[in-house]
Design a protein around this nucleic acid. Structure first.
Lengths: 222, 222
DNA sequence: CTGGGGAGTTAGCCACACCTAAGAAATTAG
DNA sequence: CTAATTTCTTAGGTGTGGCTAACTCCCCAG
């Protein structure tokens, strides 16, 4: 219901705006959206104008873009679709966790609400996707998990992997190769801030992670 | 490969042209396509012009529209996608055979070639969809089944249901209710051509079918 | 063999989603 | 506090996919 009547492009904009809002305090700007969506700023300007006309976002001239309540609902519906689809691709079709994002990105615009509900039931109402991201409920609830980035962990501290950013498929493959996967245990051995390297121990093996990699891995302490 | 680079609309046109070519000898006209696609004739005219420019169809001015070889390949790829998806929706998500067509109609444009191949493997390389329609192979082979419409059967003759047209969901529900399903046995009891009614026997029960219903059911004799 | 009438195409319009180039606003620098 | 720079928007163009209205072509009937 909430996403019907929206074009795939509009759905994408809402999802990206939601993500930008969620993961940082910086204002959501035209250029930031253009960057993430891979389009020019005028294209974003026009699209945001259309979204505002539909009451899905607010955008004071030259100001920061924000979702309205109905915009947020639509965005979360897309996130729900995306994460359920990723779960399906892994558990039913045997995709790797590095391969699902692109496919889900397209499929999320194509499946019906009935499909999503059936899929959720069939998958056993999962609470997180293959990367550990929580799956929003049908009514827009999004469980918050108490995880922190590997970077936040002090030397000697250990944690269980709860979430890994799916933004970079290459990185996901690297992490798999290093033995890092969901629910695995990691101990931080040494911070080398200057070198931008974090040494961790996984399954008794030592692994050096660059800062981007370390930032992408979220763990639950202890 | 063969369908990539085509818009969903173009894919739909090709599929409909293929269907029109396949199921009747009548020339494929602009107005026939407009009818089936639910758009105006000028819209079809423009779209066909674009398809012809891409070498997917031939259309002599004011003449009949026909697929080229590459057009046929693309159309069959869409048919393959559609039928595999219908099979999936029934076997994995528990859809009824009357509910799958619409959903597959959208999904067929969204799934990747890799998805289709994985799905086919996962489903055990099925040869027909939930309505008995044969599923084209990846290289465009389409098994022909030796079935005839119920109408062709003489009084007293029996046959096994091999294929039911999925064009009308209402009709599919009616047939299910009457106990008619894939692989079931049917005996023709009486033709009443004047009344447009065919009396058949299914599971020991007598059922009266109207002509549209009888035409939609295909059986293998004996 | 000439007129209609119906089918098909062209013309001209709108919306969406993209672009580049140019102009307006806000912020930052001097 | 002006000036320069960055950022955003407007202007104008393209392609796809729709529409209605008007025109053109083909064919059949008289």
């Amino acid at each position: 219901m909430t996403t019907s009547g929206l074009t795939p492009t509009a759905q994408d904009y809402l999802k990206v705006i939601w993500g930008a809002q969620e993961w940082s305090d910086e204002p959501v700007t035209t250029s930031a959206l253009a960057e993430r969506l891979g389009v020019s700023t005028p294209t974003v300007s026009e699209a945001v104008k259309r979204l505002a006309a539909k009451g899905l976002v607010s955008h004071p001239r030259y100001g920061s873009i924000a979702l309205t309540e109905s915009g947020r609902r639509a965005a979360l519906d897309m996130v729900r679709r995306h994460r359920l689809l990723e779960t399906f691709l892994v558990t039913y079709l045997g995709y790797g966790w590095d391969e699902v994002h692109e496919e889900a990105e397209i499929l999320e615009h194509a499946v019906s609400a009935a499909f999503v509900d059936r899929l959720e039931r069939r998958l056993g109402r999962p609470t997180r996707d293959p990367h550990g991201d929580p799956i929003p409920s049908r009514d827009g609830e999004l469980p918050e998990l108490p995880a922190v980035s590997l970077c936040e962990l002090a030397e000697g501290a250990a944690g269980q992997v709860a979430r890994v950013s799916d933004a970079d498929a290459e990185l996901l493959r690297y992490l798999s190769g290093a033995g890092i996967g969901l629910d695995g245990w990691i101990t931080v051995v040494r911070h080398q801030a200057a070198a931008g390297v974090l040494t961790v121990e996984v399954d008794g093996r030592r692994v050096d992670l660059g800062l981007p990699a370390a930032r992408a891995v979220w763990v639950v302490r202890k």
